[in-house]
Design a binder for these strands. Structure first.
Lengths: 140, 140
DNA sequence: GTCTATGCAAATTCTTTGCATGTAT
DNA sequence: ATACATGCAAAGAATTTGCATAGAC
């Protein structure tokens, strides 16, 4: 993943092992982890890394537009290397957070613009329900 | 507002001045206040009321389905006496949070169901942009 | 009178900050 | 060599909890 290093450099950021690890982790997961989760996952590779570094790094990456911060309604933030603002589905049984196809947005935005005189620039769409897995559990 | 007392009673809750005040405040505002805001607004009428009581009351009212909790992405929650899950617009200049017409939802949900195998039960839709007021400020 | 709600203070959780040291450039 | 990043510990904000007292029923 030399690509990740290039990304950081391009943004004028120093390339440190911690930054690489955090950004790569986010790029290679679909889990939308929290700062805490990231910290725990990396603590085997970086036993001395502090949670503060995770937060500082996430802040920097967010400001540089390399990641985005999600707020699913839990009281803590989740992070996503997909920076396009795309809709999410949250499983209300197991807590999993998944992406929804972004193609939804166009139609939705059209509709919304009819209903408001705000000049819209962004949106956050969260859908809640039972994932296929949890549907089975409940049925049984 | 004897109606509010009846609502509480009906849910098996004791009717206290604090609960009445909090629920009435939420019913009579379109501002989607935070716990802190509610606390401040009521502190003239209830100088001895504590913030913990506000939080406890909001928790109870939420669990009873009399209010809903919003998470606009600020790190603190807002509260709304309209318990139907309806979309919101947030002004990214002045921070105001307004309701959007709920009629939007039907079409949106139809569309979303085509894109996921989750069994959807709810959604939270937040749109961000500039309110008419702030649009003027920026233009000038 | 009983049982729940309140108010205070302390505790928790998530996140941010200050500062000395370490490290990428 | 310089400037920025890291790690630690302490501070901060939002929220929750424990417990004695007060108040609703």
């Amino acid at each position: 993943m030399e690509e990740t290093a290039a990304l950081l450099k391009q943004k004028g950021l120093k390339v440190t092992p911690q930054r690489l690890a955090i950004l790569n982790l986010l790029k290679n997961t679909k889990e939308h982890p929290t700062a805490e989760t990231i910290y725990k996952k990396l603590s085997s590779d970086f036993p001395t890394m502090s949670l503060a570094t995770v937060y500082k790094t996430l802040e920097v990456l967010k400001n540089m537009g390399l990641i985005q911060e999600l707020n699913v309604g839990e009281g803590s933030f989740r992070y996503d290397a997909n920076t396009k603002s795309h809709p999410h589905v949250v499983c209300i049984s197991c807590g999993k957070v998944e992406d929804l196809d972004e193609s939804l947005l166009k139609d939705v935005m059209e509709e919304v613009k009819k209903h408001t005189d705000y000049q819209l620039v962004e949106q956050k769409l969260y859908f809640y329900g039972y994932c296929p897995n949890c549907q089975h559990k409940i049925t049984n």
